Amino acid sequence: MLISFLDVHPEVQQALDQGLPVVALESTIISHGMPYPQNVETALTVAQTIRDKGAIPATIAIIGGRLKIGLTPEEIEYFGKQGVAVTKTSRRDIPFIVASGLDGATTVASTMILAAMAGIRVFATGGIGGVHRGAETSFDISADLQELANTDVAVVCAGIKSILDLGLTREYLETQGVPVVGYQTDQLPAFYSRESDFEVDYRRDTPEQIAQALNAKWRMGLKGGVVIANPIPEAYSMPREAIDQAIAQALGEAEKQGIGGKQSTPFLLARVSELTGGDSLNANVQLVLNNARLGADIAIELAGM
């Protein structure tokens, strides 16, 4: 039975039982997204930001083979200290991590899966994975996209990670029937930057309008998630030229070093941070906090329907 694999934090379970708003959070951003101790500080701040908005945070991970829905501060500290030693875990990896009693840091895809198992419908993260540059020959496409097509969880993000091919990712999402909703924008944000050359499918200007669309979609039995693209706050948005130059250099270095697969995104994000003098890391923190606030607002509206 499913319940035998899940450890739902009592606070999260109580909120779910009472129909209160809950926002899922991933753990790869803790273990692979930032260095210690900034990763722990950010994770705790994000959780508190959701609480301050009136919702319950549920950081998701696998610890000792158990599917954890809602981590304690001590467990977040443990994850932050372990860092990249924790296995980055997507859909294909979950049964093997569980069966072996290991720790697993959940990606966007696996966080969606575990959130859906627990009955959580809203998930806030940094940016989603997508089609990698050069995928026409490498076939490197994130499992996040297929999960969005199949799993009933809304993902609040700052768009598609700008190290990826935004155009091909948009085409893939369209083919899979995944709506891309811009929050107070007609333009698809590009993670570190508010700007891109692509438009969203639908613009919605309030959390209530977004929640109404989510409620209609799932009540009609239309399977799959929704990408809610929330631009990074203007004060922290980075110039496209600077980001594009850093990404181009990082991609070249990754190719020379033969870095690919699940190692590529952590490498590229870390290298871009180095090349931008840490500006991209600060931007990453701010956009995650921004997404947490919107995720809480949407979860509150959805819980009231």
Score class of each variant (00 low, 15 high):
182 G>F: 01
269 L>A: 08
114 L>V: 01
190 A>E: 08
151 T>E: 07
85 A>Q: 12
163 I>V: 15
285 V>A: 08
49 T>A: 15
220 M>L: 08
252 G>P: 00
112 M>F: 00
183 Y>L: 09
300 I>S: 07
177 G>V: 11
6 L>R: 07
2 L>S: 02
149 A>V: 03
83 G>H: 03
166 L>E: 04
163 I>Q: 12
138 S>A: 10
246 A>C: 06
191 F>S: 05
238 M>S: 02
168 L>E: 06
230 N>R: 00
239 P>I: 05
293 R>M: 14
27 S>E: 06
259 I>W: 02
78 Y>N: 09
80 G>T: 13
135 A>G: 12
109 A>T: 05
257 Q>M: 12
229 A>T: 15
288 V>H: 03
11 E>H: 13
113 I>F: 01
162 S>A: 12
160 I>Q: 12
40 V>G: 00
17 D>I: 11
230 N>G: 05
85 A>P: 08
17 D>T: 13
162 S>K: 11
33 G>W: 00
70 G>H: 00
177 G>D: 15
259 I>Y: 06
267 F>D: 03
148 L>S: 09
80 G>H: 13
115 A>Y: 07
77 E>A: 11
153 V>K: 08
73 P>A: 04
117 M>T: 08
5 F>N: 14
98 V>Y: 12
114 L>H: 04
244 D>H: 10
255 E>T: 12
299 A>Y: 03
215 N>H: 15
205 D>W: 02
82 Q>C: 09
61 A>P: 11
178 V>C: 14
71 L>K: 09
157 C>K: 01
199 E>G: 13
260 G>V: 13
181 V>A: 07
75 E>D: 07
169 T>C: 07
57 P>R: 02
292 A>M: 10
54 G>V: 03
249 Q>D: 02
262 K>G: 11
92 R>M: 14
98 V>E: 11
193 S>A: 06
8 V>A: 04
209 Q>A: 15
102 L>M: 15
283 A>H: 08
236 Y>D: 14
99 A>V: 11
202 Y>M: 14
174 E>G: 15
192 Y>H: 01
168 L>A: 05
150 N>Y: 05
263 Q>K: 00
96 F>Q: 11
246 A>R: 04
158 A>K: 02
266 P>M: 03
231 P>R: 05
179 P>F: 02
97 I>H: 09
243 I>F: 00
267 F>Q: 06
190 A>L: 03
303 A>R: 03
269 L>H: 01
196 S>Y: 02
248 A>I: 01
110 S>H: 01
216 A>P: 04
184 Q>F: 09
262 K>Y: 12
105 A>Y: 10
132 H>A: 14
197 D>Q: 14
141 I>Y: 04
47 A>I: 12
80 G>E: 13
54 G>I: 04
273 S>P: 06
248 A>S: 06
262 K>T: 13
136 E>M: 02
166 L>Q: 07
166 L>N: 07
290 N>I: 07
177 G>R: 11
303 A>C: 01
181 V>Q: 00
62 I>A: 06
197 D>H: 14
23 V>G: 06
142 S>R: 01
146 Q>W: 06
21 P>T: 10
17 D>Y: 14
249 Q>F: 09
71 L>F: 10
235 A>V: 05
263 Q>S: 03
4 S>G: 01
232 I>E: 08
70 G>C: 00
304 G>V: 12
260 G>Q: 15
250 A>H: 07
242 A>H: 09
248 A>G: 00
